[in-house]
């Protein structure tokens, strides 16, 4: 799988931790299509800062708990 973005995320793990929330449920709550949630989980799309905050708010965690950006020497 090609991962064009360097931004990693734990959205999938957080969904399962939140009572196995479906991708469709998360999509509805942040106002995007299910395909966009899939693209984010597969690191094919880096969401805007606003959408990132919305996702973090859904899971009631901080931004760093959802998204990670590795240091140069870790990439």
């Amino acid at each position: 799988m090609v991962k064009p973005t360097k931004v990693a995320n734990r959205v999938r793990a957080l969904r399962f931790g939140a009572g196995e929330m479906t991708q469709a449920e998360l999509a509805d709550r942040i106002g995007v299509t299910r395909q966009t949630v899939i693209a984010i989980e597969q690191a094919r799309y880096s969401p805007s800062i606003e959408m990132a905050f919305k996702i973090a708010r859904v899971f009631n965690v901080g931004l760093d708990d959802v998204f990670q950006y590795p240091d140069d020497d870790q990439r």
């Binding site: 469709a24 995007v32 693209a39 805007s48």
Partner: peptide, 14 residues
Amino acid sequence: SGSTEDIGRTDERD
């Protein structure tokens, strides 16, 4: 599966 409300829905990625 899915919702007909998704038809025509666009977001920032689109």
